[in-house]
């Protein structure tokens, strides 16, 4: 017999977990995207050495498991003197991870900029920086916006792994509750739906921001 009512006494645990997941994901998304834009610019337009350094970072992160990155930051770094709380280690791992993936996505957008846009900026007397930030960047991000949205959602869902280093997120809450009342089916089903809800909410938020950012398309 299924008994969802058995979860009710633990609702505050779920809510606390949900808040932690939202907090960390929000922070990781904002910081990860800011770094992603920065690294993408460095990768695409920076000096050869800088571009190579960024590339090594991107490939390192994209070709290793997230959980290993997380364990390295939380368990590995203290050996060389970087002690971090679980919350800090988890957030940093997510930022580092999203930054790497978004660097590659945003770089693709920058690379697809027609040469004519750069030349138009040039012949109007705009500097490289002015052309990049006033002319190139918005249409470049527009092109890869769906991919970027998906990546951010993937990273948010990936935050479930943080429970492994005892970050008290949503998955941690589910583990905790089912270990107390042995209602694993109910516990994980509810948790799954909460993640689904978060993912849908996030996509909606991205679409809303996109509509504002790319309002010149909505004009049609």
């Amino acid at each position: 017999m299924l008994d969802f009512a058995a979860l009710l006494p633990y609702s505050h645990v779920f809510i606390h977990g949900l808040i932690t997941t939202v907090e960390i994901s929000l922070l990781a998304t904002v910081l990860g995207l800011v770094l992603g834009v920065t690294f993408a610019v460095a990768r695409q337009y920076g000096a050869t050495w800088l571009s190579r350094v960024v590339n090594v970072y991107v490939e390192l992160i994209r070709n290793t498991p997230f959980i290993v990155q997380l364990f390295f930051i939380f368990f590995g770094l203290p050996s060389i003197g970087f002690k971090l709380s679980a919350w800090e280690a988890g957030t940093i791992a997510m930022v580092v991870n999203l930054a790497a993936y978004s660097t590659e996505i945003i770089r693709a957008g920058l690379a697809s900029t027609p040469k004519g846009q750069w030349e138009a900026g040039k012949v109007l007397g705009l500097s490289f920086k002015q052309t990049l930030f006033r002319v190139v960047i918005i249409p470049a991000i527009e092109k890869i916006y769906p991919a970027l949205t998906s990546q951010c959602i993937i990273v948010m869902l990936g935050s479930a792994v943080l429970s492994q280093i005892s970050v008290q997120d949503l998955t941690y809450a589910a583990n905790f509750v089912q270990s107390r009342n042995f209602r694993s089916f109910e516990s994980y089903l509810v948790t799954a739906f909460l993640y689904l809800f978060l993912a849908i909410l996030m996509r909606k938020a991205f679409n809303l921001i996109g509509k504002r950012l790319f309002s010149y398309r909505a004009e049609r």
Binding site: G116, Q117, A120, P139, E142, Y216
Partner: peptide, 18 residues
Amino acid sequence: ARSVGMIFQSFNLFPHLT
């Protein structure tokens, strides 16, 4: 660029600006 203007075959207007 202050003395020489240029116009291109493909217009090259900035799509996100009015």
